[in-house]
Design a protein around this nucleic acid. Structure first.
Lengths: 195, 195
DNA sequence: ACAGCCATGTAATCGGTTACATGATTGG
DNA sequence: CCAATCATGTAACCGATTACATGGCTGT
């Protein structure tokens, strides 16, 4: 994705990827916390964007540590170490930078929706396939909205204020997508029947 | 992002990334066309997601050629070759696969919005910074919506049906995001004044 | 003739993915 | 005790990014 500008320049000139910043945020919320907690939080968060795979997170945490944005206390746990991370002063600064107006510009311009991308090319299918695609898209989106709503309800009590607000935002955007898909479907169906 | 599943399995078992599929779509629309045209089309398309950089496109086209999804006729142009690409039969099949219901599931689940991601962590800023962030976000989103509207209007005549529809979708989602941001802003402002 | 854009590429780098390995803990 | 799950990592790969190099065309 844009992959365009997925990084934002921080206070010390260092750049952080979105994922790195997001992890900083999670650590801020849960510190001191382990890599595992970071992964789990990331997994249940809205963003279906990152896989939260170990191969992504562990090296990332090492990077953050090297930059002195996070610090780890080690306590033992069997033969292995168990490391709990907290933000450093610089890390907190970096996080605030990520949440500052200066970072907003490109974030606001960001739009990406793989369903919509496909719609652009729908004229390369037969009318029947088109309707088929749209019907499935509507169905799938509906069910995703449902899941989000259910999850929000079931988590209701344990969600922080901004967690709740964020989830509402995701639902609102999905609903807009759904309304649009329906209008496309209607349009296609009607231009179908009377040409 | 989930980066997760940014690929979809095609008819012959081969997987294609979203970008690869998207390029197949562009070639279908413009064939025979050069790499440069592909890049330009991608650049003006809605998706701020890809940079449409040469370093992405040229190797990608080579890949598609190796898989026999596209074919190039070469005509000379000075000392260099100028290659014009068209879809092969397999390529067309692959494109239709990408536009089939089976690909819809994960595409529908995909949500990502860097502004929203940030809102999740807004409790790690001061109240003042929060409002600042939200005001800028609203402003930036408003202006992006404006640009899209203007562009749609100015291109009106040369847009294909689904181009126009796709752009409307992008605008609709941005407007939903904007409404949500405003409600967040109001909420934050009011919970601010009477704590 | 030269500046500036159009156009085609290559090289190095890097973040994130999948797949794998392995140790610790818990529940039946 | 054994299976399942919790938890911590590593290795190989790969698509996309930035930065660079270079050739051809166009207008003044």
């Amino acid at each position: 994705m844009t992959r365009a500008a997925k990084t934002s320049r921080g206070t010390d000139g260092r750049v952080a990827t979105e994922l790195e910043s997001c992890v900083l945020g999670i650590i801020a919320e849960r510190q001191p916390c382990t890599a595992y907690v970071v992964r789990r939080d990331l997994g249940v968060s809205l963003s279906s964007y990152w896989s939260a795979s170990a191969g992504a997170i562990y090296p990332l945490l090492r990077r953050l540590e090297e930059r002195d944005w996070i610090r780890a206390d080690e306590n033992d746990w069997g033969t292995r170490k168990r490391r709990s991370f907290s933000l450093t002063r610089t890390g907190r600064k970096q996080l605030r930078e990520w949440l500052s107006p200066s970072a907003v510009e490109w974030a606001a311009a960001f739009t990406y929706d793989p369903l919509r991308t496909r719609v652009f090319f729908l004229d390369h299918t037969t009318p029947k396939q088109r309707l088929d695609f749209l019907d499935h898209a509507i169905q799938a989106t509906r069910s995703v909205v449902g899941e989000h709503r259910a999850e929000k309800r079931s988590l209701a009590d344990e969600l922080s204020e901004f967690d709740r607000i964020g989830r509402e935002g995701a639902i609102a955007e999905l609903e807009a997508r759904l309304r649009w898909l329906r209008s496309v479907r209607d349009h296609v169906a009607s231009s179908e029947s009377k040409p």
